[in-house]
Nucleic acid binder design. Structure first.
Length: 328
DNA sequence: AAATCAGTCAACCGCTGACTG
DNA sequence: TCAGTCAGCGGTTGACTGATT
């Protein structure tokens, strides 16, 4: 942990040493005292307007800074520690679908923040993919494995795949049921997979700050310890997300484009013990899986569209929901 | 032991879109 | 319709750290 370095700027965000003290806002690393203030305020009052949070919590920070600190570090439902291989696979997978939409990717990885995933991608995965792709067949399109564009590129992806090299070659084995199945060569399935923005309009479980759907128990360990919290968050269902536990992957829906696919309302991908399951194949529904597919509607006139969350329905089974306050 | 380098990560910056008066 | 405010997002920066020379 870096030492907090108290630099001060004016409320306009520009450095201004002539401002009066009351108008000065701190920048840089957060001190433990500041963390404690923010934490205590959030737990007692919940999330409101962030500029009010900053002011009322007695912090000489801008609201934006408070928001970021809360989301990326203090939020009790955060999972800490290194990314598991499963999470790594998922990040690669979702990045191939969503590109640099880090918040969308984070929405599908309970307990992880967009910042965390972004950093992990830029520092670790990107490099690894580069190394792997450079060692793969030279016949592959350079674009197919060039993550520098950081955007999904369906055409190049499949060009490379067809060429026997490129990105397809660097998909982890555990991803192959999704990435590498020969049946995926069909147009409809390709469209299925590579609808570039299947959930852009929909936040998934984490979007809009909705709390984690998982139960974070003591097995998670370090997270609770770091925060000084006893974490036991229960919402929508119980899913263990410790590194060694099964991972529930919030759904990635696809748009049907063919007659054959008209009956397919949603494709929901689950990850469990190194296997992926899709409800489109009726494979899924483990006990701990949440029946998210039921919450989407199929608008036949306009193609498949995302339905609204039926919040009331969802909340029926939720007896306690400690973080709802933050959304009020 | 000191200097240098590369990797990691927390935080900031600037932009965009939603909302409101 | 427009301007102001705010939340949220992705890109970027820079401090820190461990490895290497």
């Amino acid at each position: 942990m870096r030492k907090p370095e108290p630099s001060v700027v004016s409320s306009t965000g520009k450095n201004n040493k002539n401002n009066s003290m009351s108008n000065k806002l701190r920048k840089g690393l957060w001190s433990p005292e500041e963390d404690e203030k923010l934490m205590r305020y959030m737990l007692n009052n919940g999330q409101g307007c962030w500029s009010d949070v900053a002011r009322n919590a007695g912090l000489e920070r801008c609201g934006k800074s408070c928001r970021l600190r809360w989301i990326n570090y203090l939020r009790p439902d955060l999972k800490r520690g290194a990314f598991s291989p499963q999470e790594e696979d998922l990040i690669i997978h979702f990045h191939s679908l969503l590109g640099n939409r880090w918040s969308q990717i984070a929405a599908r990885l309970p307990g992880r923040t967009d910042n965390e995933i972004k950093n992990f991608w830029n520092s670790t995965i990107k490099k690894r993919l580069k190394v792997l792709s450079s060692s793969s067949s030279s016949t592959a399109s350079p674009n197919a494995s060039d993550s520098s564009s950081d955007q999904p590129n369906n055409k190049d992806f499949f060009t490379a795949a067809g060429g026997g090299g490129g990105f397809m070659n660097i998909i982890p084995p555990s991803m192959m049921p999704i990435y590498g199945d020969s049946s995926m060569q069909s147009t409809s399935l390709i469209n299925h997979m590579f609808d570039p923005f299947p959930m852009v309009e929909h936040g998934g479980y984490y979007n809009n700050g909705n709390p984690c759907t998982a139960q974070i128990g003591s097995s998670v360990g370090s997270g609770a310890d770091d925060c000084g919290f006893e974490e036991n968050i229960e919402a929508f269902g119980n899913v263990n997300i410790g590194v060694e536990e099964d991972i529930f992957v919030p759904p990635l829906e696809s748009v049907s484009t063919t007659d054959q696919d008209q009956n397919l309302k949603t494709e929901t991908i689950f990850y469990d013990n190194n296997n992926y399951y899709s409800n489109s194949n009726n494979i899924i529904k483990g006990e701990n899986m949440i029946g998210v597919g039921n919450y989407f509607e199929d608008d036949q006139d306009q193609g498949l569209t995302m339905g609204e969350w039926d919040l009331e329905d969802l909340m029926k089974d939720v007896s306690s929901f400690p973080f709802l306050d933050y959304q009020s």
